[in-house]
């Protein structure tokens, strides 16, 4: 008897428990406008929580390339790509605009960014290196993607080509949340919809899911799995490099972020509008290590006019004459834009 009953109970439990989690959540109704207003009025200054990022961009597995002896520049590109494309768990502690700590939890290792006032520390437990930078007064914190920041970018770009609706309520990090759905009215973009979960109590954006056209599971998801609004322990923001660590002092120029994705600077040009806009970087400004990296060669495919790096959400085209075109549009649109059509 027990040989049959216990396995059955376990299987039933494993199936039913997730179903119960998705029970209907009742919240006072809000119109899209009210919800946008609610989100922008959010005043959360201190929090601690765990963020999970999952991306299924349809890129080939990069883990093999990451370890290749391609020089430090190649490794830099690979590790940046790895952060964007892989699945990661990170713990985030924030207190006010100038105290922040982000811990990317890797297996048997951890990467830390600690900001306390003007001091920023980067620490990598794997090679036990730390780097320190001093930010000029009033500078922006190092760019770390939290659901809130990502949501802000999408909310800021709402225009007439976006339909804003309120989706079904959800449970995010154990808290009831509204869901705001942005649907591009543009057929050329690869983005089918962007769903932003907004905490029902504070208006804080607690999750972002991007659905690619033709996909059923989110191609990219970033959300809190745990969230506490209590002020984190002040000791978390005080960082002293542990003994035996190689410490590098970063100069101001290295600290400054390269605005690669921000149009309007230097000679980058943007064509198209809204969701299907295409960024074009002239050959002279494409970093040479990117164009020559073995990563690009192994992950991209030959198309007429250049090499195409295709993912579920973004297509990147490196033309034969060295220009780089990037956009959340179909490959055909990119090739047309490259040809000047």
């Amino acid at each position: 008897m027990p040989a049959v009953v216990v396995p059955a109970v376990i299987v039933v439990g494993a199936v039913i428990a997730p179903l119960q989690a998705s029970a209907v959540i009742v919240l006072p109704e809000k119109t899209p406008e009210e919800l946008l207003e609610f989100a922008s009025s959010s005043e959360v200054r201190a929090l601690s929580g765990t963020i999970e990022q999952n991306s299924r961009l349809g890129l080939p597995d990069l883990s093999g390339v990451t370890g290749s002896p391609g020089g430090s520049e190649g490794a830099d590109i690979a590790s940046t790509l790895e952060l964007v494309t892989g699945s990661h768990t990170a713990r985030v502690y924030l207190n006010g605009p100038t105290n922040a700590r982000i811990q990317v939890l890797d297996q048997l290792a951890e990467r830390n960014i600690v900001r306390s006032g003007g001091d920023v520390w980067f620490y990598d437990s794997e090679d036990r290196t730390a780097s320190h930078a001093t930010l000029p007064a009033g500078a922006e914190a190092p760019r770390v993607q939290t659901p809130e920041r990502l949501a802000d970018r999408f909310l800021a770009s709402i225009d007439q080509t976006t339909e804003v609706t309120v989706g079904t309520n959800a449970q995010v990090a154990g808290r009831p949340a509204y869901q705001l759905v942005l649907t591009p009215l543009d057929d050329d973009t690869l983005v089918a919809s962007v769903t932003i979960a907004i905490d029902s109590e504070t208006g804080l954006a607690v999750g972002v899911e991007i659905l690619a056209s033709g996909g059923t599971a989110p191609a990219f998801a970033l959300a809190f799995t745990e969230l506490s609004l209590a002020t984190p322990d002040a000791g978390l923001f005080a960082f002293t490099p542990p003994p035996g660590t190689t410490v590098t002092e970063l100069t101001e120029a290295e600290t400054r972020e390269e605005p690669t994705d921000r149009p309007g600077k230097s000679s980058h040009s943007v064509s198209g509008e809204g969701w299907s806009s295409i960024l074009e970087i002239p050959a002279s400004e494409v970093p040479s290590e990117f164009a020559a990296s073995p990563l690009l060669a192994s992950a991209s495919q030959e198309v007429s006019g250049g090499r195409l790096l295709s993912t579920a959400l973004v297509n990147v085209l490196v033309t034969d004459d060295g220009r780089l075109l990037l956009g959340s549009v179909t490959a055909d649109r990119l090739q047309d834009a490259a040809a000047g059509l």
Partner: peptide, 30 residues
């Protein structure tokens, strides 16, 4: 890690209890 993350401890314990229950029951039945 600092602070300690007990989450995986709990997840791990739950998973192992599941395996103990399942294979314990099979062993008992046999």
């Amino acid at each position: 890690r600092q602070p300690i993350s007990w989450e995986s401890f709990g997840d791990n314990a739950l998973l192992q209890v599941g395996y103990i229950a399942l294979f314990g029951a099979l062993a008992l039945g046999r």
